[in-house]
Amino acid sequence: MPSETPQAEVGPTGCPHRSGPHSAKGSLEKGSPEDKEAKEPLWIRPDAPSRCTWQLGRPASESPHHHTAPAKSPKILPDILKKIGDTPMVRINKIGKKFGLKCELLAKCEFFNAGGSVKDRISLRMIEDAERDGTLKPGDTIIEPTSGNTGIGLALAAAVRGYRCIIVMPEKMSSEKVDVLRALGAEIVRTPTNARFDSPESHVGVAWRLKNEIPNSHILDQYRNASNPLAHYDTTADEILQQCDGKLDMLVASVGTGGTITGIARKLKEKCPGCRIIGVDPEGSILAEPEELNQTEQTTYEVEGIGYDFIPTVLDRTVVDKWFKSNDEEAFTFARMLIAQEGLLCGGSAGSTVAVAVKAAQELQEGQRCVVILPDSVRNYMTKFLSDRWMLQKGFLKEEDLTEKKPWWWHLRVQELGLSAPLTVLPTITCGHTIEILREKGFDQAPVVDEAGVILGMVTLGNMLSSLLAGKVQPSDQVGKVIYKQFKQIRLTDTLGRLSHILEMDHFALVV
Rank of each mutant, 00 (worst) to 15 (best):
K98L: 06
S27W: 15
P215I: 05
D86M: 10
S19C: 04
K267S: 03
N149L: 01
A237L: 02
N228Y: 02
R121E: 03
L248T: 10
F112E: 07
P145K: 04
A158T: 05
A186W: 00
I122C: 01
S50A: 08
R190Y: 06
N216S: 15
I92F: 14
K97N: 12
C272E: 08
Y223V: 00
A195H: 05
H22Q: 09
A157R: 03
V252S: 07
Q7R: 07
G20W: 08
D35W: 03
W43L: 15
E144R: 04
G263M: 00
T236N: 12
S175Q: 12
G151Q: 01
A8M: 10
D79H: 10
R209P: 01
V252M: 12
A265F: 01
S32C: 02
I44H: 10
P12W: 08
L106I: 12
V160H: 01
E110G: 01
I44G: 02
L181F: 05
R45A: 13
L81S: 07
L81M: 10
T193I: 09
L268W: 00
V189S: 07
D221V: 01
P200G: 08
T262R: 00
E37K: 13
G258Y: 00
I166L: 13
A226P: 10
K119I: 02
V118T: 08
F197A: 08
D198C: 12
K211R: 13
P21W: 13
V206N: 02
Q242E: 15
K25L: 11
T235V: 05
W54F: 08
I122K: 00
F197R: 08
I219D: 01
W208E: 08
C109I: 04
D47K: 05
R45L: 13
P59V: 03
T5A: 03
L124G: 06
E128H: 03
I122P: 00
P41V: 12
D238Q: 03
S202P: 08
L105E: 00
E104C: 11
E131K: 13
E239W: 05
V160R: 14
E104P: 02
G96E: 10
N194L: 08
D234S: 09
A157K: 03
R18W: 14
H67E: 10
H65V: 02
I240C: 00
V189N: 07
G162M: 06
E201L: 09
A130W: 02
E4F: 04
L241W: 12
A24E: 12
